[in-house]
Simulated assay, not measured.
Amino acid sequence: MKSTTRITLMVVIAAIVSFSFIKSEEHIAEMEAVKKVVYDSYINGAFNELNAEAMEKGFHKDFSIFTPKGEEISKYPIADWIAGVKKKKANGYDQNDKKNIWDHNFANIDITGKAAQVKVELKNQGNHVYTDYLSLLKFDSGWKIVAKVYHKHEK
């Protein structure tokens, strides 16, 4: 192989490796941004801290929880959920009570462009209670949770 061919090949390989590194850094940054929204707005906002302000920041205004009811779909909109969180907190919610502490595990995070899907496992007092699937979209203002479907585990 001629030395110019070797040099060209080395430059091409270096460019591919550099591009892959940049893409993976961008992907890691997006994964961290998605995790932060889910952690702040969902895990702490909706569960551990009952922080309605954090929920309003991280959930899209058109968000709903979708639940099957026979062959129909029941929708629980974010406005109703936030109202319930505010009411529960106003009625003496004790953040240190063990029954109000939810452990979580990010089982999977999948991002393609401006769409993401997060699988979160929620445990309460050592029991696996929910497996949640959160859909997110990236808007000009950042990532927002737009929908949830879930499975409630039997004890």
Rank of each mutant, 00 (worst) to 15 (best):
M1R: 05
M1D: 04
K2E: 14
T4N: 12
T5H: 02
T5S: 05
R6C: 13
M10H: 00
I16R: 00
V17Y: 00
S18Y: 11
S18L: 15
S18E: 02
S20D: 02
F21I: 15
F21K: 08
I22S: 02
K23V: 03
E26V: 03
H27Y: 09
I28L: 05
A29C: 04
A29G: 10
A29I: 04
E30L: 03
E32W: 02
A33E: 12
V34M: 14
V34S: 12
Y39N: 04
D40P: 03
S41N: 03
S41V: 01
F47L: 15
F47N: 13
N48D: 05
E49S: 15
E49Q: 15
L50M: 14
N51K: 08
N51V: 14
E53P: 02
E53I: 07
A54E: 06
M55S: 05
K57L: 06
G58N: 02
F59H: 03
H60Q: 08
K61E: 15
K61C: 05
D62I: 10
F63W: 10
F66K: 10
T67F: 04
T67E: 14
P68C: 02
G70V: 04
G70K: 07
E71P: 03
E71H: 13
I73F: 11
I73R: 08
I73D: 04
S74F: 14
S74Y: 13
K75S: 10
A83H: 06
G84M: 12
V85R: 02
K87Q: 13
N91M: 10
G92C: 05
G92W: 04
D94S: 13
Q95L: 13
K98H: 05
I101V: 08
I101G: 00
W102S: 02
W102D: 00
D103M: 05
D103H: 03
H104M: 01
H104F: 11
N105F: 00
F106S: 06
A107K: 12
A107N: 09
N108L: 05
I109Q: 02
D110H: 04
I111G: 06
T112D: 11
G113A: 12
A116N: 05
V120E: 05
E121L: 13
E121F: 04
N124A: 09
N124T: 11
Q125E: 15
Q125C: 12
N127C: 06
H128Y: 07
V129C: 10
D132A: 12
Y133K: 12
L137S: 02
D140W: 08
D140C: 03
W143Q: 09
W143H: 08
V146D: 06
A147V: 07
K148Y: 07
V149P: 01
Y150H: 14
E154S: 04
K155T: 08
